[in-house]
Simulated scan of single mutants.
Amino acid sequence: MRTRSALIAAGVTLALVAGGATAGASYAATPAAAVADTTPAIVAATNAFLATLTTAQKTSVQFAWTNTTQKKRWSNLPQGLYTRAGLMWGNLTTAQQNAWLAVMQVTLSPEGYTRVRQEWAADDQLASGGGLQYGQQYYWIALIGTPSATTPWQWQWGGHHVTVNATVSGSSVALYPSFIGAQPASYTSSGATVKPLGDIWTSAYALLSSLTTAQKSAAVLGSTYIDLLYGPGQDSRAPAFEGIPGSSLTAAQKTALLTLISKYGNLANAEDAASRLTEISATLDQTYFAWYGPTTNAGNAYFRVTGPRVIIEYSPQAMGGTAANHIHGIYRDPQNDYGAAITG
């Protein structure tokens, strides 16, 4: 069991806001009671999902913990360009689908779950053709290792533009690497505009706008956006510490940087999000913010956060429309991808 006490010790006001298209009130870190260990609930939900499957489906979805190939089998590419393994969402019954959603809900925060569902639903806006298959049905589930409250295991879910890799080890959950993207980045659902990553862009632009001219000269490294450096297949790439470090920011700017990071840190449930932000706060001075592209609010710029415990990338893509409406994104922990720091 972990507490939020270390967050208080970090001396940083955390703006933890709701994710996805919803806006939520921020709150400052204040002394709080211990947050209950979420792992037993994750294990119970996963076993309940397994209980809905046939014997053949269980064989397809389960992989040995030693299967490092499957642990790293994920991509942002659509079905038809990348071969995944496990169970495909469109082949599951409604009861099986609901059982899996329960696993995601207990592992993720309400804000994180909403964001992931919105990213996922965006794929339904794309037309299939040319051998490529888009839509929510073309997402895959895999379980690596045996669900346990004590020994490590991983659940894996993803498809085109969104993947979550969740490694569970004892009371710890690591959601890295995960792909946090969307195409389209803005769409209409039930008459409302949905922007799965809208609050992320808003937070990044607010941080950029708070920088002085001298600070911007350190942070802005190019006039056009660039592609991901740390996407699928880049597990061994060393962190690029460039841009402006946290040590060069004012207290208010550090709060803005941590607010941006919390959009990703809060992907996890409350217990693991608190632990995650404690880790990042401890090395905030050594965490860098870099920007490539226009310094306007058009949404067509790349940004990156790189620190000892975090890598975040947000990369517009020109393919399939305007760059601001097609986003690739990554969330990693250089020390804890695939649970390296919690399963050793």
Results as ranks from 00 to 15, higher is better:
residue 10 A to G: 15
residue 18 A to V: 01
residue 21 A to D: 13
residue 25 A to D: 11
residue 36 A to P: 01
residue 39 T to A: 08
residue 45 A to I: 12
residue 48 A to V: 07
residue 51 A to N: 15
residue 52 T to Q: 15
residue 55 T to I: 12
residue 55 T to Y: 03
residue 59 T to L: 08
residue 62 Q to C: 09
residue 68 T to N: 13
residue 80 G to N: 06
residue 81 L to A: 14
residue 82 Y to G: 01
residue 106 V to C: 01
residue 113 Y to T: 10
residue 117 R to T: 13
residue 126 L to W: 05
residue 134 Y to C: 02
residue 134 Y to E: 06
residue 136 Q to K: 15
residue 139 Y to S: 11
residue 155 W to S: 11
residue 161 H to F: 08
residue 165 N to L: 06
residue 167 T to N: 02
residue 171 S to L: 00
residue 185 A to R: 12
residue 187 Y to F: 15
residue 194 V to G: 03
residue 198 G to Q: 09
residue 210 S to P: 11
residue 211 L to P: 02
residue 215 Q to V: 01
residue 215 Q to I: 02
residue 220 V to R: 05
residue 224 T to C: 00
residue 225 Y to L: 05
residue 226 I to V: 15
residue 226 I to G: 00
residue 229 L to M: 07
residue 230 Y to V: 08
residue 240 A to V: 14
residue 268 A to L: 15
residue 270 A to D: 12
residue 282 A to Y: 01
residue 292 Y to V: 04
residue 294 P to K: 14
residue 296 T to E: 06
residue 303 F to W: 14
residue 308 P to W: 03
residue 309 R to N: 15
residue 319 M to G: 01
residue 320 G to Y: 12
residue 321 G to F: 07
residue 326 H to S: 03
residue 327 I to M: 02
residue 328 H to I: 12
residue 336 N to I: 06
residue 339 G to K: 11
